[in-house]
């Protein structure tokens, strides 16, 4: 039955849900107490977005907890493990820059996503600012932080191409322009941070647009196992 869900709210909701989950893993482990609060704020914004989006697609809990791995439509980027703080920041920078462009456009449109996008775009602007500030500090900080930040940008680069594959149901959006503006913005931040834009391919050989098609990376299965096990252990229960 859930195979029939075709609204674009589903892939966008999955992005927010899974990234929020990853950020939630930082709780109690952030590099400094102030950053605990900041990361949790972003995670909560994303979870709020996910709940609205998934509710447009069906029952939020049923969709989050009872789908199988191949039924999730999120980008592979957002499911990547947290890694060190630089990896988390690189993931945030790539994703929030993308999400801001997408939501700006959706907010101006007339789809069912417009109200959510209008509200979320303000949150996402803040997420991008947070990621940008940290990219600048880690890039232009110490030798160690520069090495880590560059490594993180490089390591996640191959998951960025997928973001510009048109989301089913949103084919009319200017995806090529998204890619251009995204690249311009990322380049500006990376250069200001005295880092270099990664040079490799923006997608893996066989996995182009894979997350959106329900193909994920290995860590995703374990993420779902952890996220879903309690809910699934008590079928039909109310929480």
């Amino acid at each position: 039955m859930r195979d029939t869900v075709t609204t674009p709210a589903l892939p966008l909701g999955d992005d927010a849900l899974i990234l929020s989950h990853r950020l939630g893993e930082w709780a109690g482990q952030a590099p400094v107490l102030e950053e605990e609060v900041a990361l949790a704020n972003i995670a909560l914004d994303l979870l709020g977005q996910a709940r609205v989006l998934l509710s447009l697609a069906g029952d939020e809990d049923e969709l989050a907890y009872l789908r199988e791995e191949r039924e999730f439509r999120n980008l592979q980027l957002v499911e990547q493990p947290n890694g060190d703080f630089a990896h988390t920041i690189a993931r945030q920078l790539y994703f929030s820059t993308y999400q801001e462009l997408l939501f700006e456009q959706l907010a101006d449109g007339d789809t069912e996503l417009a109200p959510l996008a209008g509200k979320a775009v303000k949150e996402v602007a803040y997420h991008r600012d947070h990621a940008t500030q940290w990219t600048l500090r880690l890039g232009d900080g110490t030798d160690e932080s520069r090495t880590r930040m560059q490594h993180a940008l490089d390591a996640l680069w191959r998951f960025t191409g997928e973001m510009f594959e048109p989301v089913p149901g949103l084919e009319s959006l200017p995806w090529a322009t998204f890619h251009d503006v995204w690249t311009t913005r990322i380049t500006a931040t990376v250069e200001q941070a005295t880092l270099r834009l990664p040079e490799g391919p923006q997608r893996g050989a066989w996995t182009a647009g894979a997350g959106r098609q329900g193909l994920h990376t290995e860590p995703f299965g374990r993420l779902l196992a952890e996220m879903q096990h309690l809910h699934r252990s008590h079928p039909g229960a109310t929480w």
Binding site: E34, N41, D129, H130, Q133
Partner: peptide
Amino acid sequence: MALRNARD
């Protein structure tokens, strides 16, 4: 960063 931390 102080301003952002204060906001949060």
